[in-house]
Simulated assay, not measured.
Amino acid sequence: MTEHTLSEAEYDAITDAAAHWCMRLHANDCTGQERLAFEQWRDAHPLHAFEYEAMLEIWEVAGDLPSPAPVVPIVRPKPKTPWRTFGMAAAVCALALPLAAYSGWHLGWVPNSYQHFEASGNVRHVTLNDGTEVELNLGSELTYSNYKDHRQVTLKKGEAFFSVSHDTRHPFVVKAAEGRIRVTGTQFNVWMYEDKVKVNLIEGSVLVTSNDDLPGDGLRLGPSMQANYGPGDFIPRISQTYDNDTSLAWRQGKLVLDDMALSDALPLINRYLDQPLVVADHNTGSIRIGGIYNIKDINGLVKSLPRVLPVYLTRNQSGNLVVNSIPQKPSKS
C-alpha cells in the first residue's frame, strides 16, 4: 500500500486550518463544541498536530507584540447569513495579515524568519538562518527569530554553545530565564538549569544582564570569564574560568566530575535525567565524586553510585531517587 503524498494545495489547506484553530482556541468566545471539533481535526492526521504546534510557536512570538489601541465597538445590523460574515472576515484577514506582517517587520515587532530546534537523543549541531552555528546539549530546546533591528534566540531549556555570525548592525540576543546575553559576533556557552543561568565566554565579548526588565545593557564579559544569575539577582555574578575548566566537555559527549561535592555535581547530573536525583541531607551532599561519564548513560552513573561511594539509593514520595549516606560505625576506643 503506497503512502499518499500531499499536494501543495492540500498542505496549504492544513496550514490555513491550523492558523484558524489557533485563532479560535485563543478567542474568548470559543465554544466547547468548537474545541471538540478541533480535537477531531487534530487527531485526524499526524501533520495536523505538527502544523498546529508550529502555529502555536509563531503565536508565542507574536505574544511579544505591542497591544493594539482599544477599538470603540460599532453596532451594526445582524447579517442575514452566517456564511457572509465568515466570508467578509476571511477577506479582511487575507488583506490585513500581509499588511500587518509587512508593517510589523519594519516597526521591529514581527520577525521575517523563525526556527525551532530540539535535541533529544544526541548532541545536535544546527545552523541558524543568519549563519550562526549552534550546538545543543541533550534535552535542550531553543527558538530563533530574525527581527529588523536584532536577532533573537530564546533558550527554553538546557544548554547551547553559540558561534555567532558577526554583524555589528544586527546584534544577537539570547534570552535565558529572566536575563539576556547580547553580542555582535563571538563564541559562548549558555546553560539554564531550572531558573538559574550560567554563561561562559570563549571568544569575543558579551553583555549579560540578570533581568531583561532592568535598564542598561548589563555587565561585559571578556574571554575566560563566566557569569551566573538567578531570580531576583540585580546584577550577574562574574568570575574567572581556568584552563582546566571542563564545563564544555558535553560537546564531546562527556560529563567530567572533578572531585566535587555530590551536592555540586547534582545539577550537572540532573540535566540528563527525566526526574532529578536528590541527596538526603548535608552529610550526603558533602561526599566527593569524580570521574568521566558518557552523557548518554547518566542513568548508568546513578545506578553505579552505591558501588563507588558509601551511599545507598531510595525513592521519595514524588518518585525521585534519593542518595543516602551509609552511617559510619563508631570507632572502638
Rank of each mutant, 00 (worst) to 15 (best):
G230D: 08
N211F: 03
D212V: 15
G230V: 04
N211M: 00
K198T: 11
L201M: 02
G204F: 01
F234N: 14
V208P: 04
Q226D: 12
G232C: 03
L221T: 10
G222L: 15
T209C: 00
I235R: 02
G232S: 00
I235C: 00
L201D: 04
A227P: 09
N211A: 07
K198P: 04
D212L: 14
L219V: 15
T209G: 09
D212I: 15
L201C: 03
S205V: 00
N200Y: 11
G218Y: 10
V208F: 00
L221E: 03
V206Y: 10
L201G: 02
N228G: 07
Q226M: 15
Y229H: 08
Q226E: 15
S210Y: 02
L207W: 14
A227Q: 11
L219Q: 15
L214W: 06
N211G: 01
V199Q: 06
K198H: 03
P236H: 09
V206R: 05
S205E: 13
P215S: 07
L219T: 09
D233H: 07
L201W: 08
G232Y: 01
G218R: 13
T209R: 08
R237V: 06
R237I: 00
N200F: 00
D233V: 00
V206S: 11
V199G: 08
V197E: 03
E203D: 13
V206P: 09
F234G: 11
P236F: 06
I202V: 15
P223F: 07
G222Q: 11
D217N: 14
N200A: 11
G218N: 09
G204I: 12
S210E: 01
E203P: 00
P236K: 07
I202Y: 05
S205Y: 07
E203A: 12
V208H: 00
I235L: 10
S205C: 03
P215R: 03
G218S: 01
Q226I: 05
M225S: 00
V197Q: 06
G216P: 10
S224H: 12
F234T: 15
V208E: 07
I235A: 13
L221I: 10
G222T: 02
I235N: 14
N200C: 01
L214E: 14
V206H: 05
R237T: 13
V208K: 08
P236I: 02
G232N: 13
K198C: 01
P223K: 05
F234K: 15
G232H: 11
D213G: 08
D213E: 13
